[in-house]
Simulated assay, not measured.
Amino acid sequence: MVKLNVYSPSGGQHVAYHSGVEIFGGEYVFGGGNTSYSGVTVQRPKIPPAGSGWTFYQTVEIAPCRYSRDDAMRQIQQLRAEFPASSYDLMARNCNHFAEALCQRLCAQGIPSWVNRLAGIGNAMRSAVGSAPTPAGPARAEGAGGPAAAGVVASSITDGDLTSQIDWKAAGVLNAVESEPTEALQTGSVTSEAGSPELLLLLPFISPVKLQKLVLGASSEAVPTSLRLFANNPNLDMDDAMTGAATQEFQDLCWTSGSDGLSTTLEVNFLKFQKLSFLAIYARGEDDGIISVCKLALIGRA
């Protein structure tokens, strides 16, 4: 199901709305900036970026997606190229215009007219006075990360488990069956959708860290067989994580049995994970199965 997540300044009925399209565990949004790169990013569904001023209002189910997951990801990638950050315009080409285009692409249905009503009013007024749309100036693109992703927050130096340094409010897990996957990852386990054995963990840090080891736990029936790690890349989606250039990869993972289940410990290339403000972990298992992650420990220095 293609869903539209709508946000307002107060979390209730309002004149102005921001929106993102949720599909296959991720929410795709469009934001402006002074770059020719795409302004489309992926974030945890229903969680607006920290400091954005938006509050989740409601979810609108649009229609079933008419593509398989792989074909839908290709459609999204094509559309991303059509929405560079520099083309953002509050009235003529905003986040809601992107949501309309993506919904049309994925399910041949548009978004409700009330979501982008303010843009229609603004364009009518702009036409009346004869002024043309003006591209937005430099702005922070919408997406996961927050100040830690830019490496602007300092902290004291400590050694050990870095999970306490994760900004859990801005973290996300894509393709999980749990309704609150981030909370599930912290307190228990997360599991992939049946027949789609992959999970993408998106982990921003409160302040930059130095990663040395990664420890994962899993159930014996649903172990990941490979991992791909990405350093300081907060705008990944599942397709990017599966096919893009990873910072480090681990194939044919070796799992050991202990009192608390199966676990694997991986030594990362320390030089590649210095000044780490954002870590993405793509875990994949055997085709047509499921995978789970029931323990996560990041060892290093903060």
Rank of each mutant, 00 (worst) to 15 (best):
A184G: 07
L229S: 04
Q186S: 05
G172Y: 04
N233G: 10
S52R: 05
R140I: 14
V268E: 01
A119C: 12
S8C: 05
F98G: 03
P208T: 12
Q77L: 06
A222W: 05
V215S: 07
T55M: 11
E267K: 09
T191Y: 03
Q13I: 13
G31M: 08
D240E: 10
Q75F: 04
V177N: 02
S164R: 07
L90N: 12
I281W: 02
A170F: 08
L199F: 02
G122T: 03
I23L: 15
V223M: 12
S10A: 13
S19N: 02
P181T: 02
L200T: 04
S207G: 10
T35E: 09
E183F: 10
S131V: 14
V215D: 06
Y67Q: 10
Q212V: 08
G20E: 01
D161V: 01
L229R: 01
V129D: 09
T55G: 07
E27T: 08
P234G: 13
L253N: 05
T182P: 05
Q274K: 15
L214A: 03
L162W: 00
F205I: 04
I281P: 01
G146F: 04
A184D: 04
G25A: 05
L202T: 13
Y7I: 04
I62E: 00
H18K: 06
G33N: 13
F24Y: 14
S156V: 15
M73Q: 09
G258T: 14
E22M: 12
